[in-house]
Design a binder for these strands. Structure first.
Lengths: 221, 221
DNA sequence: GTGACTTTGTGCGTGCGTTCACAAAGGCTT
DNA sequence: AAGCCTTTGTGAACGCACGCACAAAGTCAC
């Protein structure tokens, strides 16, 4: 988030920024921002602030964005197609090495300049291109099987869009993005705002379920 | 998450489940699960567990899924298209009332059985269909403007896919999904596993940045 | 060069979510 | 009917992230 705010500042020609300004742009507390940045070292100048360009480099390096990452997308449905065409990946050092799908009617299609390949070739592609991150955009039922295969083939990071909890061996990272759960969380708060269902008393502020806080959030009693 | 695990159990014909089993399926600690469920009331039977069907109903009601929610998707690029065709919404009580885009070459196109409308009509559509949740899938530059308009038109929940921090008045909820940040977090851990960049010492376990924990995660020292 | 002002870096307190561990409660067997 | 066994519900402790507030440090003006 800081990196994103910083590059936006960079594009506007700003060369120096205070923790207060950057925190506001990133939607966090300024003390938290300073503490976060202090973990990278002391890159600020007291009385002045942080040099934008230098900070961009330091954060990029810390996040590992100075090197390229090779990604494979498995499952070329609506979501897989969107991911394949998503510009935000390439611009941040993520290179899509392959689109794979088990559906024969999709295999061979050209999507965003890439030819969809059969899932049979998964192991070849991962090994051949040095894929280290797999994006799983398959239906729920196929996700665990695909996950097992990519892990066996050497992938140690998985981004999972399928609505299932994947189990993986130690040393493998899994992150999950669940679109309908995001909507459900919003619906939950929406219901609260409307007074709650079936005579249920609205929760007091702070009674919301965990994991629902966000950069900007206001929940009224 | 619990609801998803429960419906999966329901489909397999399981009628009763213990906190231990359900917690494993949802990827959480069993004590946490019991405490979460206890907030809904005492719906378990000691010595036996929870009745799946009853729990599904209770959670659905609590989350507000027993009623329908009307959604508008603004921005019909790759991602907007994928969202429009995403089956997970309709099956959980979310109805897409409109697809809107500012690009004249997209307006009028038929996507997933819906005609893309001009963003000019945003206020009409929100008022006419009673939209309460807006999904913003526009480019970053347009997001805040669209957000301001949907909020002014009465929307009080926003799901934001644009890579910007939206500012909204009190009483409006915003949730953000940022695809490239998910990949960046994975890349960060991946880099750590590889030994860190430029002779940087790998962080000890627990030194990972906040907000990076997940259902399944293993970060090696 | 000196003083005043600005902003960083961080020790400390607070609040919250998570987990452990156990008592209470219900079912099942004999 | 009684006792054993399983599982829930929850009090208490732990750990962590966040925010406050201030001292240290560096800049800028005079």
């Amino acid at each position: 988030m800081y990196l994103r705010a910083l590059t936006a500042l960079q594009e506007r020609g700003v060369s120096t920024v205070s923790s207060e300004e950057l925190a506001a742009a990133a939607g966090v507390n300024s003390a938290k921002l300073r503490k976060d940045l202090s973990h990278l070292g002391s890159y600020g100048t007291r009385g002045v602030g942080y040099e934008v360009e230098y900070l961009v480099y330091q954060i990029s390096r810390e996040l590992g964005l100075t090197q390229d990452w090779v990604v494979a997308i498995i499952g070329v449905g609506n979501l897989g197609r969107a991911l394949a065409g998503y510009g935000g990946f390439a611009s941040r050092g993520f290179r899509v090495a392959g689109l794979l799908d088990a559906d024969e009617s999709i295999v061979g299609q050209e999507i965003s300049g890439m030819t969809v390949q059969n899932t049979d070739r998964l192991e070849d592609i991962i090994a051949g291109h040095g894929v280290s991150i797999a994006v799983i955009a398959t239906p729920a039922g196929a996700a665990q099987g695909v996950c097992d295969r990519v892990v066996a083939a050497g992938v140690t990071s998985v981004l999972n869009f399928a609505p299932v909890v994947l189990s993986v061996p130690d040393g493998v990272d899994v992150r999950k993005v669940d679109l309908s759960i995001e909507l459900q969380i919003l619906a939950f708060h929406e219901q609260r705002k409307a007074g709650g269902p079936d005579g249920l008393a609205p929760l007091a502020a702070g009674d919301a379920p965990p994991g629902t806080t966000q950069y900007v959030e206001t929940v009224e009693a």
